[in-house]
Design a binder for these strands. Structure first.
Lengths: 198, 198
DNA sequence: TTCACTATACGACACATTGTAAATTTAGTC
DNA sequence: GACTAAATTTACAATGTGTCGTATAGTGAA
């Protein structure tokens, strides 16, 4: 946002990083309900009052973290979109990029997406993917299998995006037993059974 | 459990019902983090201490409610299983029953499944459906499209169960714009594109 | 109806958590 | 090295938590 004008104070970055790391740490150990500002500050080795200089409360902190996550993913996807030549908005290249990004930060994503204790993150990712899938279906128009089979567009979107995010979450929970490339191929095999256009 | 031996004290049933109703009420108004035992007891018009006679804390109460939900759904599905003649474990009849049950208690389910604030419930339902879908795939064996297309069984299960539960959740969130029968048919159209056996 | 039983209500307690408000110290910027 | 802003420290009121007795009142059975 204001990156070009003013650089952010390193102390701010440090504190926020400490808080986020501490949060992931604690979430690994206990349920989210048990994470108090007290414990969080203690684990982050910062003063409790300092927390309130950065976030309104813990839910607020979660939202900010989710914002950052979405921003990261957006960057990963935007970069790969350039190389795309598929008619679909989500193609194998993009999915592989996404899965590789998740795998590269698997500690974070496993806790944040895999444990169903922080629905905000899954929620946001679902929204992002829903948008992409919706665009994809729009682009294909009336000659797609979905249109031919008389399937409501919105239902197809519900179905596909939930399937995608659910597959990713399960993959994370099982500690990523397949490579990103393999999983992406499998996913498109399953999807291709629905619509052979890819 | 102990139904045949001793009948449960109606005061217990009353208190628990008051607590559960109050909880749904509050969840409609505010985020789950803001629901304290204080507020809950006040809304339920019972004494705060009485809450602790029934539940350890709020997360414990949620678990018990999720248990009840799964039990209800099990009953609905078990009844309909009898009428089944399809080779699949989840068939249209069952899905319709499930959707009708959800629609009949839509206020509860919309809040509990639709708002992503109570992941325990979605979690449990996902586990239930995963089991059923897994059985279905097992029964079909090696002649299914999934096997033919060289798709890993576990990935297919992740995909299908997430798609199913996600579709239901989205349907609830949009205030059930389709009838249970229609949605079930659409769902099996989407699934049939994967495996024409149903 | 009477009576034993037990769920609920009530008041009180120690303790943790929250959110805010100073004044002060520390560290980064220019 | 001086200015600025972040972080610390201490303190405070308000709320929430979990657990005591003890009193009250609804329940089911004799």
């Amino acid at each position: 946002m204001d990156k070009p004008t003013t650089r952010t104070d390193p102390r701010i970055l440090r504190t926020r990083q400490l808080l986020r790391d501490a949060f992931i740490d604690l979430l690994e150990e206990m349920d989210i309900e048990k994470i108090s500002v007290n414990r969080l500050a203690e684990r982050a080795t910062i003063n409790r009052v300092t927390f309130y200089l950065h976030y309104k409360d813990i839910p607020d902190m979660l939202e900010k973290m989710a914002d950052d996550m979405i921003e990261d993913i957006h960057q990963v996807l935007d970069r790969s979109t350039v190389k795309s030549d598929s008619p679909d908005v989500i193609n194998t290249t993009m999915l592989v990029k996404l899965l590789e990004h998740i795998a590269a930060h698997s500690k974070f994503y496993k806790i944040i997406l895999g444990s169903r204790r922080t629905p905000i993150f899954t929620e946001r990712l679902l929204r992002l993917l829903t948008g992409l899938i919706s665009e994809g279906i729009d682009k294909r128009g009336n000659d797609s299998v979905i249109a031919k089979a008389n399937i409501q567009k919105d239902i197809a979107i519900w179905y596909s995006s939930a399937a995608l995010i659910g597959t990713i979450v399960s993959w994370l929970r099982e500690d990523m037993p397949y490579t990103p490339v393999f999983l992406a191929k499998q996913f498109f095999l399953l999807r291709t059974l629905q619509d052979p256009k890819d």
